[in-house]
């Protein structure tokens, strides 16, 4: 299932928006945090997990999704949210803790919730898997052809929730796709030091579902495999597990000195930046021209700039609004 030129263009545009958004986060996050780094200071306090380099995982899957499809994402959620169509301005405002944010500032960067496009994420490793299974159960019970996708990092496969959820999804033949973004690091612990198998896709065999491995952070190959998995899920053929070999081009969180990285690793990964590769692919294939690339780039940057401006200019919530929305 190969993407059309239009789909390829959409994927590239979305990857650019995502990258520019993260670059803006990277800069703004450090405001008020120099010369002394204090996580509580600046316009964006708290932890910040950037998704630079992992964009292919989000677009290769979300290119197939419609708003009624459910996505549960991780503590590193921006690229996934952007690919699912979460409103960029409202998301930025939420990350700034503003009243206009998706949740009025109650969630923040690790708790992005957008009911309009059925997107939710979580700060706990593997926590989104159960809800994705449940959303898929809901779709199945309603006779709807929508699906659920759970994104997770490769570190999450060693959580009980992963194994329980895959088994349950397979037992009930649910329309859910589990997508592992393997960036090979669980904070500072390498995959080799934490995981008994080389490729987690083989774990699918234990749960009687197809397991697919996508090498080299390839959004086109992922589009193909995810398309089949999603089509199967919509047709009632049950779940699929996909593992994507990807790259984390930033630290685990902002402020991570990354002393655990082997010498040269980051340079090697950056030389394979998926944004650059996608641009070259589209130009080589004649999908876009250099001029169009410039336009696409400027448009993506403008979207991000407008979202950041909206967030900066929005008001903070009244402090006592903290007491609202515990219950509906």
């Amino acid at each position: 299932m190969l993407p059309t030129s239009e789909k390829k263009k959409w994927m590239y545009e979305n990857m650019l928006v995502s990258r520019f958004f993260e670059e803006a986060m990277e800069t703004i996050y450090m405001e008020g945090k120099t010369p002394v780094f204090n996580m509580a200071e600046g316009p964006i306090p708290g932890e910040m997990h950037l998704s630079n380099g992992q964009e292919p995982c989000a677009v290769g899957v979300c290119a197939h999704l419609k708003p009624s499809d459910v996505v549960t994402a991780t503590h590193r959620p921006h690229h996934q949210a952007i690919a699912k169509g979460v409103d960029l301005k409202l998301m930025a405002a939420e990350i700034f803790g503003k009243k206009t944010g998706l949740s009025g500032g109650r969630g923040g960067h690790m708790h992005i919730f957008d009911a309009d496009v059925n997107f939710a994420c979580s700060g706990i490793i593997a926590q989104g898997l159960g809800p994705a299974v449940g959303a898929a159960l809901s779709k199945q019970m309603k006779g709807d052809d929508s699906v659920a996708v759970a994104f997770l990092g490769e570190g999450a496969v060693n959580q009980g929730a992963f194994h329980e959820s895959l088994n349950l999804a397979a037992v009930w033949k649910l329309p859910v796709i589990f997508v592992i973004e393997d960036n090979s690091w669980g904070i500072s612990v390498s995959k080799a030091d934490s995981t008994a198998v080389k490729h987690n896709a083989v774990r699918a065999q234990a749960y009687n579902m197809p397991g697919r491995f996508i090498a080299d952070n390839d959004p086109i190959a992922l589009y193909d495999v995810a398309g089949i998995a999603i089509e199967d899920a919509r047709a009632g053929k049950g779940p699929t597990l996909i593992e994507v070999e990807t790259t984390r081009l930033a630290g685990h969180f902002m402020g991570d000195a990354e002393g655990y990285r082997p010498d040269g690793e980051l340079d090697r990964l950056k030389s394979k930046d998926p944004i650059v590769r996608m641009k070259n692919l589209l130009i080589d294939e004649g999908v876009i021209t250099d001029d169009e690339n410039l336009q696409i780039t400027q448009k993506a940057q403008k979207l991000v700039d407008e979202a950041i401006e909206f967030a900066r200019e929005s008001d903070y919530p009244e402090p006592a609004e903290a007491l609202d929305k515990v219950f509906v």
Binding site: T72, G130, V133, A161, E164, L168
Partner: peptide, 26 residues
């Protein structure tokens, strides 16, 4: 058995699944 579902002994998965189903209108 579609509306009265016995589950495996996987409380994390089926309670998490209940949250996901509830958020989806069930």
């Amino acid at each position: 058995s579609k509306r009265i579902r016995d589950t495996p002994i996987s409380e994390t998965a089926f309670i998490g699944a209940a949250v996901g189903a509830a958020q989806d209108g069930m």
